[in-house]
Design a binder for these strands. Structure first.
Lengths: 339, 339
DNA sequence: TTGAAAGCGCTAACAT
DNA sequence: ATGTTAGCGCTTTCAA
């Protein structure tokens, strides 16, 4: 029931156009190496036959794909999507295609994709997930294709890296809350062991130390970067004998959770308490109240990492193999000065 | 300076293992066709040489890739990310890999990717963008590889399709607002000409007609699915001699914009006015007030479309080539009964 | 259960 | 400017 004709190949076109396959190939890939008349003849033959290039054959022959794979733990995470935008645009600019692999935070799928990447499925690899080739196979064969990691550095790896200066950023935000006159400044943490969390918490500590304020363990609450964790933290703070003056949540979702939690208890933010977040995700500005937060230049992270990768792929020496991008405080309505 | 050794090929492994290349190939792809002893020898040789398969070669030979391409207009759009999750999981379940192409709403990039897809870069195509192969090339050669479109139907195409029953959904939501006792029900539209917009507006009209309420043009405002459009609409409503009782925004971002706009003018939602959205994006529940909205089963759209595609790829007859998924009202705090 | 051998469809020397 | 030719690295009949 499938009476399809054989797909036309390059020699079908060549025959019809009355030239050699080499000429067809050139007419398609490097038109200016071919006489206009010939080019036209080829174009006509392509039309007529309905020829489409076979990529597998080309890739096999050229040993290149002009494609780059971005491995993302979770495409539905609003954080990564902006980074991807920067990657996508930059690649396009340089004539590469982007393919995205969503691993769903599943190590198996991660390995799968990485393996395929090594198998020549793409020319380069962008790792957005802070780990790869986990302990599973310890043969530790170094990545055979150019690879750059971004957003999270991979523990125990010296892969080229582009990230936000998380520690500095967290220090700055804490310092900002202190400058606002707050003294009891709480902190809602990210997942234990997470590398971002470590950096941000270190920054928080740095700022308090600079003001000779002791860490108050009752103000430091666990979290996991979810809205729910923020709500839970709010409840926990409410059960304290004395509320903090301000809380720095180590990401925006938790900051929003805090606001909801406090609002639900009849406490207004920022009148009763100041709340600051981290990331400046899309909805931070739209929130009620609009969130004061640390803006990570997610787009820029993608752009820089991609530039680095392209240099690597094309055999140039990248300007730098380690980039730490500054983050800036975005002051909105969830914090206020205490005077 | 690049003293890399030649990548090992299958015959290197074969030689080392003392077998033929055919046996190596089988040991890798269909282990149970090979004697355990041989299999072990091959495995050892693979280890020793550090052999990795060359995908281009395999794809060329087998004429398959076991990969599927999802073409997305904008990965940073929260709507699509959930759909992608459903796609990704379903594909994985069936042994396919997903690659995502972000076209950045750019027709050129769209065509690029589609072309590569036809060139055998993948086995199937998932179109999330509501158009493809736009007027540019009118040679209208039918897609050579299995293709399913989702989310938005493509005008003037009879591609297999999975979508939300937008018209029904919009009718239901409008009906709901009417049931709540609202009479002057406003509508904030999506981009003119957008197919979703047409369906949703039709549903809005259906509901009003069923109650014999005339369309009031002053209550129907243009929009473009952005938060800003919602804010602008709020301002426009505020300048009316009489405010509507309720407004149905044709997506969540605009509903949030409306709430901000009214809140900024000192009007409380839902006390002064009810606001309903469409989509139930991630932040709808977290918003202040939590948004009453139409929940599209985005994950399910992805799942069903992917099943359909796999059937197509593997030569089975899909159960259906046209699926319209119902959407359900999620009642939250941005609407209230008027009594 | 294994091996020999013939391509899959293209591109890039090299020659003309 | 164009043609000839030799593979790229794998899988898969077919035969043993």
């Amino acid at each position: 029931m499938d009476e399809r004709v054989r797909k036309p190949r390059i020699d079908d076109v060549a025959r019809l156009a009355g030239v050699s396959t080499a000429t067809v190939s050139r007419a398609l890939a490097t038109p200016d190496q071919v006489k206009p008349t010939t080019r036209a003849a080829v174009a006509r033959a392509v039309q007529e036959t309905g020829y489409v290039l076979n990529l597998a054959a080309r890739n096999l022959r050229t040993r290149r794909t002009r494609a780059v794979l971005a491995v993302v733990p979770d495409v539905s995470n609003v954080f990564f999507t902006q980074v991807l935008r920067g990657i996508s645009d930059t690649l396009h600019l340089h004539g590469y295609r982007l393919v995205i692999a969503d691993t769903g935070n599943d190590a198996r799928r991660e390995r799968d994709h990485a393996e395929f990447a090594q198998a020549g499925w793409v020319d380069g690899l962008l790792l957005l997930n802070g780990r790869l080739l986990s302990p599973a196979s310890s043969d530790a064969r170094p990545a055979a294709i150019p690879t750059v990691s971004l957003c999270e550095r991979i523990t125990g790896s010296d892969l080229p890296l582009v990230e936000t200066a998380n520690r500095d950023a967290a220090r700055d935000m804490t310092e900002h809350l202190l400058q606002l006159g707050h003294r009891r400044v709480g902190y809602v943490a990210g997942p234990a062991g997470n590398i971002l969390e470590r950096d941000r918490f270190a920054g928080y500590r740095d700022a308090l130390a600079a003001h000779a304020i002791d860490l108050d363990p009752s103000l430091i609450l666990p979290g996991d970067y979810t809205l729910g964790a923020g709500e839970a933290a709010a409840a926990a703070y409410l059960s304290l004998p004395e509320l903090p003056d301000a809380v720095f949540a180590s990401n925006d979702a938790m900051a929003m959770g805090l606001i909801r939690g406090f609002a639900g208890a009849g406490l207004s933010v920022p009148d009763a308490i100041s709340i600051a977040g981290f990331d400046d995700i899309e909805f931070a500005a739209a929130y009620n109240p609009a969130l004061t937060t640390m803006r990570q230049e997610r787009n820029e992270i993608g752009v820089q990492a991609t530039r680095m990768l392209i240099d690597l792929i094309e055999g140039r020496e990248p300007t730098s193999l380690q980039i730490s991008l500054p983050a800036a405080i975005v002051k909105r309505n969830s914090t206020r000065s205490r005077r």
